[in-house]
């Protein structure tokens, strides 16, 4: 007993180091995607307010670019208005009448915290469950897709960024519709990797990659990026490197998309899997 005590006293530094280090590593190893998000959003109750203030200041520096983007988007939306069309035939039916039902709803939110330099990046939005945001909603910017909402508090939402090793989405080549999973490779903020495209498919550099709409989170046909380069992997499938169209370093305003059909899609897919 005394020897044991002497041993502990003699090596107390090493022993305490091992205890603290194993606790830290325990935190690290136990961090599955769910814990990571919880850790992130709980820490945000503390720092959300500070981030909000910081972002308020930073916003002024990007006002010019933001205005430019908003006015471009306004113009695009004006073009889709009913008043921008001329009635060519008396029996033409327009979108938005009683024959169509709303499928997607767009909410705007501001990015108050965003990282790009980690392997598991998250984005914080200044709008939460009180503003109608729920987990598993899609997030886009005017340039392309951004991520998926993971957790919400009443006033803030934590978004799993596309630049996160846990992020995976079904994407397709716009011109021929072949689809596969797209994920980030953890290297550069500008590129993601699309795999499982069979080798007989005609692929060219510069082809557009869009969301496939499978999974019910993202609507179909949203811009992800363009093909930068590709190579055959294992002889049967292409591994395609996609140049992302969103600039994650400059995100400031985003749209969050609610899919009204999602619950129904989920429940039918669940019943098939049973």
């Amino acid at each position: 007993m005394r020897n044991l005590l002497r041993f502990i006293i003699q090596h107390h530094f090493l022993i305490l180091f091992l205890i603290i280090e194993s606790f830290s590593l325990f935190l690290l190893f136990n961090a599955n995607p769910y814990h990571r998000v919880r850790f992130y959003s709980s820490s945000h109750k503390v720092s959300g307010r500070i981030s909000n203030k910081m972002e308020n200041i930073k916003d002024y520096f990007s006002l010019y670019n933001e205005n430019q983007k908003l006015s471009e988007e306004n113009a695009r939306l004006y073009n889709r208005l009913k008043s921008s069309y001329r009635l060519v035939a008396a029996d033409t039916i327009f979108e938005g009448d009683s024959l169509s039902q709303r499928k997607f709803m767009y909410l705007t939110a501001r990015v108050i915290n965003n990282t790009v330099n980690k392997q598991y990046n998250y984005i914080t939005l200044d709008r939460g469950s009180a503003g109608g945001i729920e987990p598993e909603m899609a997030v886009i910017s005017s340039d392309g897709i951004v991520g998926i909402v993971k957790t919400v508090t009443p006033n803030y939402a934590a978004v799993l960024s596309l630049l996160n090793r846990d992020f995976i989405i079904s994407a397709k080549i716009k011109k021929n519709g072949y689809f596969g999973p797209l994920s980030w490779n953890g290297n550069s903020t500008e590129y993601a990797t699309l795999v499982d495209i069979p080798h007989h498919v005609q692929v060219n550099e510069g082809d557009t990659i869009v969301t496939s709409g499978f999974g019910g989170v993202f609507p179909e046909g949203f811009m992800i990026g363009t093909i930068d380069h590709f190579r055959l992997k294992g002889g049967n499938y292409y591994e395609i490197t996609v140049n992302l169209s969103s600039d994650f370093r400059k995100l400031s305003y985003v749209q969050v998309i609610r899919n009204y059909a999602r619950q129904e899609i989920d429940s039918i897919e669940y019943s098939v899997n049973q």
Binding site: S24, L25, L27, L28, A31, R36, F39, S43, T115, K118
Partner: peptide, 10 residues
Amino acid sequence: FMGTPGVHSS
């Protein structure tokens, strides 16, 4: 604050 459990502490 950075949301990286255990990385910086270890």
